[in-house]
C-alpha cells in the first residue's frame, strides 16, 4: 500500500515538475489578484492592513480553485485513471497520493509566496507566521474538497465553472477560520482556537474526502 502511495506520488510530482509552467501560472494569478485590491479599494495603509488577511486568503482560495480542474484531467484523457481504478489497491490510497502531489505542486508555492504578498499589504509582522500556518492547514482541505468536485465534473462541458459552483460553498468554512486566524492574531486575541478548528477540519477531510473522491471517480469513468 505504501509502495503504491509513494509510486503515484513520485510519478505525479515528476509530471508536475515537467509541467512547471502551470504552477507558475497559478502563482502569478495569486500575486496579481492580491495586487488588484489596492487599485480597487485604495492604497490607504490602514485600510489595506485591515483587509489583508481576507484578501490573502481569498486569493489563495481562488488560485487553488483555478488549478483544480487539472487534478485528474490528464489521467482521465490518457486512460491512466481507468488503469488505476482497475488495480487491486484501495482507490483511496492513490487518490490521497495524487491529492498530496497536487497540493505540493500548487498549494505549497502559494504558501511560500504569501508572506511576501502580506508585506505588500502591510500586514503586521506577528501575523505572518500565523498566515503561513493557517494556509498550511487550510489549503490541503481546499484541495481535498476540490478533488471530489474535480472527480465529479471530469470530462464535462463547462466543467471549470461547474466545479467552482460545486466547491465554493464548501470552501466557506475554511475561509472563515483561515482568515479569522490571521485576524485574531493581529488583533491580539490569539489564533489558537481557529488553528485547532482548521486542524480538526483537515483531519476530517483526510479521513473522508479520499473515499468520496474515489467513489466519484468510479462514477465518472464508468
Amino acid at each position: 500500500m505504501l509502495s503504491t502511495f509513494l509510486a503515484v506520488l513520485r510519478r505525479d510530482l515528476l509530471l508536475a515538475w515537467r509541467g512547471r509552467a502551470d504552477v507558475l501560472v497559478t502563482l502569478a494569478f495569486f500575486v496579481i489578484v492580491v495586487c488588484l485590491f489596492p487599485f480597487g479599494v485604495g492604497a490607504e495603509p490602514n485600510q489595506l492592513r485591515a483587509i489583508a488577511p481576507g484578501v490573502l486568503w481569498v486569493a489563495a482560495l481562488l488560485a487553488c480553485l483555478l488549478s483544480l480542474h487539472r487534478l485528474f484531467a490528464q489521467d482521465y484523457a490518457d486512460g491512466t485513471l481507468e488503469q488505476l481504478l482497475l488495480s487491486r489497491e484501495p482507490a483511496a490510497v492513490w487518490v490521497m497520493a495524487k491529492v498530496l502531489a497536487f497540493w505540493l505542486s500548487t498549494g505549497l508555492p502559494v504558501i511560500a509566496v504569501a508572506p511576501a504578498m502580506a508585506l505588500l499589504l502591510d500586514l503586521e509582522q506577528g501575523g505572518l507566521s500565523v498566515l503561513v500556518l493557517s494556509l498550511t492547514l487550510g489549503t490541503p482541505i481546499l484541495t481535498l474538497l476540490g478533488a471530489v468536485g474535480a472527480a465529479l465534473t471530469l470530462g464535462l462541458r463547462g466543467g471549470g465553472m461547474l466545479l467552482a459552483l460545486l466547491v465554493l460553498p464548501l470552501f466557506v468554512p475554511v475561509l472563515i477560520f483561515g482568515a479569522g486566524a490571521v485576524e485574531a492574531e493581529v488583533s491580539g486575541s490569539g489564533a489558537l482556537a481557529h488553528l485547532l478548528l482548521l486542524g480538526g477540519g483537515l483531519a476530517g477531510a483526510v479521513a473522508l474526502a479520499p473515499w468520496a473522491c474515489a467513489a466519484a471517480l468510479r462514477i465518472s469513468t464508468e
Binding site: 464548501l170 468554512p173 465518472s220
Partner: peptide, 24 residues
C-alpha cells in the same frame, strides 16, 4: 450517482457551514 455524491457531501458540510458562519 454524481448528484447523490454531491448531495451527501453538501449534507455533511451543512452543519459545518452553519457552525462556521455562526462563529464568524
Amino acid at each position: 450517482r454524481a448528484g447523490a455524491i454531491i448531495a451527501l457531501v453538501g449534507a455533511v458540510n451543512v452543519p459545518i457551514i452553519y457552525f462556521s458562519v455562526n462563529w464568524w
